[in-house]
Design a protein around this nucleic acid. Structure first.
Length: 301
DNA sequence: AAGTCGTGGTA
DNA sequence: TTACCAAGACT
């Protein structure tokens, strides 16, 4: 074979070998995340999935422990007002996730007898559960065979199979087919692949500084074989934050978290002095989303 | 289907 | 210091 011929995408046999190698690597490299403990049930897994959406795992660990201590099952959370969930969410970010998790707990009590459903379709119908989260719960909590395609797995597959530094900006149908091709036939191996491929992306095949020298499947990676070519095409859009409505909402919500008894409307608007109209917009948004509540002139969570 | 939605760590 | 980006969902 000519040395300059680009590596081809791995076939079924090589994919199976890679899956096995990553699974083996996982036995010693896996982080001892508390929700991976065998004693943790589906609800604990589900809470961890909500909390880790767009949030680094390390930041989630302590809030997760506190949450499960307070609400060890869906019914205990569902029995309290959603404002308690928003307050307990603290500074994890994207507080609507707290609202959705509360809503999911209510729905689980109403529709599933208080037990987290095992079927991806039923999971997907819960607020805050998208395709990824449904697959993750089915796989991690119930050992099901599901395509668990998160940002880590997308990057791993982009590199190993496609020879690209990064996947597309948003998940494509072609990408789902690719991930399905990688999914082992039996449930136990598939669940193992889901967890281990995510871990590989999180610890080794990282976005900014991949540690190819310590990658267990470096010898199978098209991207590495091609000399780690830089991402082509339009730059992945950044996430501007300073001065945005999001920052304003975050500021107001922070005040409401610190003052559970409530804050006068004028006082609350005053904590965002950048732009009065923006402060109003932020408050209206929080009220419309159900993250804040009005009682006359008093605003509370 | 491109925009919106928090927060904080890292290089 | 600025820019990137982290177990996404929803509209």
């Amino acid at each position: 074979m000519p040395a300059d011929k680009p590596a081809a995408a791995p076939g079924p046999a090589e994919r199976a070998r890679i899956v096995g190698t990553v699974a083996q690597w996982f036995t010693t490299a896996a982080r001892p995340l508390p929700w991976r403990d065998p004693s943790v049930g589906p609800w604990g897994v589900m809470v961890s999935e909500f909390m880790t959406q767009q949030t680094p795992v390390a930041r989630v660990i302590e809030p997760w422990r506190a949450w499960l201590r307070r609400w060890p099952e869906p019914a205990s959370l569902a029995a309290e007002p959603s404002s308690e969930a928003v307050a307990a969410w603290g500074r994890l970010g994207y507080p609507r996730r707290a609202l959705r998790l509360h809503g999911a707990a209510v729905a689980i009590v109403a529709r599933h007898g208080g037990r987290v459903p095992a079927e991806p379709e039923q999971l997907r119908a819960l607020p805050g559960v998208g395709e990824y989260t449904a697959a993750a719960i089915a796989s991690f909590a119930f050992g099901a065979r599901a395509v668990v395609l998160d940002t880590n797995v997308r990057r791993v597959l982009a590199r190993i199979d496609r020879g690209r530094q990064y996947p597309a900006n948003s998940t494509t149908a072609a990408e789902r087919r690719l991930a399905a091709r990688w999914l082992p036939a039996d449930a136990a191996t598939a669940a193992r692949w889901a967890a281990s491929s995510m871990e590989l992306g999180a610890l080794v095949c990282t976005a900014a500084a991949p540690d190819c020298a310590h990658c267990p499947v470096a010898g199978h990676c098209r991207w590495l074989a091609a000399g780690r070519p830089a991402h082509e095409g339009p730059a992945r859009r950044g996430q501007a934050y300073a001065g945005t409505d999001r920052q304003a909402r975050g500021r107001l919500l922070d005040q409401l978290r610190r003052n559970r008894a409530g804050v006068e409307t004028e006082t609350l608007l005053g904590c965002w002095d950048v732009d009065r109209a923006q402060a109003r917009r932020a408050l209206d948004g929080l009220l419309a989303d159900g993250l804040a509540h009005r009682h006359g002139e008093l605003i509370t969570l």
